[in-house]
Nucleic acid binder design. Structure first.
Lengths: 339, 339
DNA sequence: GAATTTTATGCAATCGATTGTTTCAGGATA
DNA sequence: TATCCTGAAACAATCGATTGCATAAAATTC
């Protein structure tokens, strides 16, 4: 039979009421052990599968958490989601995935849809060009736990899990200096986005701390794509300056540049050391393997999931105690940056 | 206010009943245009957000589709999910993601959990060591659309979307032959898994069709990891045979082997051409860029999503008309395999 | 043995939306 | 004017599980 059995079926089979069955299944203390056992046996016999939707309706909360990211199709995000799913599943939650495609409008629409699905919480890395955060108010007002990761904004009084871009950049730059680089170019993107601002700040501070003058003409801005990197690589070759190191805020731009240089190896005066950011899967496979700052996607996902579970278990504290977790990224040092 | 407004609030505001409001919102023909307009205005005014859970309970079906994959943390799967999500979202569905971690037990547990969440359908690429498909019966018996992709089994009378591994392998091997290879090694894994069996079959047929003798000692079995590939690469170097081509059923094994060969370049008698499978992101970044068979993750995701929507719209046809969609994979030819 | 507390269930309302079946008022028809 | 339609909205049941409150039976106390 495909007819789903309900607690009422169990109830009538046992000549008790549905409330008793419900309580028995939920291990309510006021139900006798004998009845609990009978209910459990009957449930198994009838192949009873609880209807979570009914419970969710009654309780006003489902066991589903919405995760909204720009795109799932990038290693960092899918890796974070991987960890979130693993942790939340063990806690009895499901994960709904939605993508904003970096569009604020889509983001708003998807958030609305998630709310309508009565999610128990929302985990979010928001769209790039977000300027207005009004739509988060709705979530907070309804006391639905909201956790941000990767991308966030200072103005938001919300739990956040990020890596310390500044430290990562600082250490990467320092590593280049310690490996003999004295003239280091920085590939960056618009300072509108905090992660790039922070990475630039780390780069600058590292130089200064090591007594190297910061030169604006060594800070190159682009969209940091592979193609951008390729152009920047050619620019490196044509520069009169004796650049001997590159700290790129993106792995893609870094390997684009390395590609350009390899293509014209003859022109190289001296070798240029490279350090990237994100530790994309391919960094270890290219030639030479690219040193990179690892964003700790695994830990981030776990932290985010745990933060959510804490919120769910202590809903009373509300937004009063917003927590910002900052993970220190890890340098993955490979041959591209070493002597 | 964080109090959610319901159709009853709208109803009492307008002095009509909830049923009228419900029908108005659903654009029911028996509701006058005037009322519809009034309801819509009131809904907007009260910031009404429908409670999907309540609707799902009443209708016995939610607008959520469960996607169960071995892991989301691999490019192929996250890419497929990316496309599924995009298509199903436009159709008003959500996507729940779950991972089986290639464990049949976990797979069964997650399927059960998805059923309890009252999903409208299930999209699945099942765990490797699956031998028993009893747990799918449940899904089918309940008339819940079930779509398999990537991995499947002939015994299952279920909609399926796969790529033609045989053709992909055949064409890749043929490409190597056309580029001058006469002694081609094949990296494979256990023939228990149909995709590897098919790829081997394609390799063998291509050789025969081109008058090249198939030699069992040129078919090398492993788990196809990067490390396995590295070992196989060393074996290539030490082999007395004059191997001049490798068709690997996995990109990872291919680049592992290429790595090993690069490490000992001096020993190379003649260059070996490589062809991989899966078209992982990194294939284009390594040196030389690796030719590979693309698995069409994007198309697969779209096909799967559309197949689901068809099933949902024509539930009557049941399993009678099981459809198997076979996509022809695309060769991505790069320099690793060319003269 | 009566009174009181405990324990284990039953009863009934509820969550919010949907839907088959009336009901009613106004219009058309004879 | 009486009858019949018909369109529009009301009524009421329902989906399945949960839960505050009431209650009966058993256990305890005096």
């Amino acid at each position: 039979m495909s007819d789903k059995t309900t607690i009422h079926d169990i109830a009538s089979m046992l000549r008790v009421t549905a409330s008793t069955v419900s309580r028995a299944l939920n291990d309510h203390p006021k139900i006798s052990d004998a009845t609990k056992r009978r209910v459990l046996t009957a449930a198994k016999k009838l192949n009873y599968q609880p209807n979570n939707i009914a419970a969710a309706l009654r309780q006003g909360k489902s066991k589903v958490v919405g995760v909204l990211v720009p795109t799932i199709d990038r290693h960092y995000f899918s890796s974070v989601i991987h960890s979130i799913e693993a942790v939340l599943n063990d806690a009895g939650y499901h994960v709904i995935v939605a993508q904003s495609h970096d569009s604020p409008e889509l983001e708003r629409a998807k958030l609305k849809a998630l709310m309508q699905a009565q999610v128990a919480g929302i985990i979010l890395s928001f769209a790039k060009q977000n300027t207005d955060f009004e739509h988060f108010k709705d979530i907070i007002d309804r006391d639905i736990p909201l956790i941000l990761f990767d991308r966030y904004h200072e103005s938001l009084e919300v739990d956040t899990v990020v890596i310390d871009d500044y430290i990562g950049a600082y250490k990467a730059t320092e590593h280049l200096i310690e490996n003999g680089c004295t003239s280091i170019v920085h590939f960056t993107s618009t300072s509108q986005i905090s992660i790039y601002k922070e990475r630039k700040r780390g780069y600058i501070d590292a130089l200064q701390r090591h007594g190297i003058a910061v030169q604006d003409e060594l800070i190159w801005e682009s969209h940091l794509t592979l193609e951008d990197g390729f152009e920047l690589g050619n620019r490196l070759l044509s520069e009169s300056k004796a650049v001997d190191g590159v700290f790129s805020a993106s792995d893609f731009a870094a390997i684009g540049a390395m590609q350009a240089i390899k293509d014209q190896k003859g022109n190289m005066v001296r070798p240029i050391k490279f350090f990237g950011f994100s530790n994309e899967t391919f960094t270890q496979f290219i030639d030479p393997p690219l040193s990179s700052v690892d964003q700790l996607s695994h830990s981030t996902g776990e932290m985010v999931a745990h933060r959510f579970l804490e919120r769910i278990q202590h809903p009373h504290q509300k937004s009063l105690t917003m927590q910002k977790t900052v993970l220190t990224p890890k340098l993955c040092i490979r041959s591209s940056s070493q002597k």
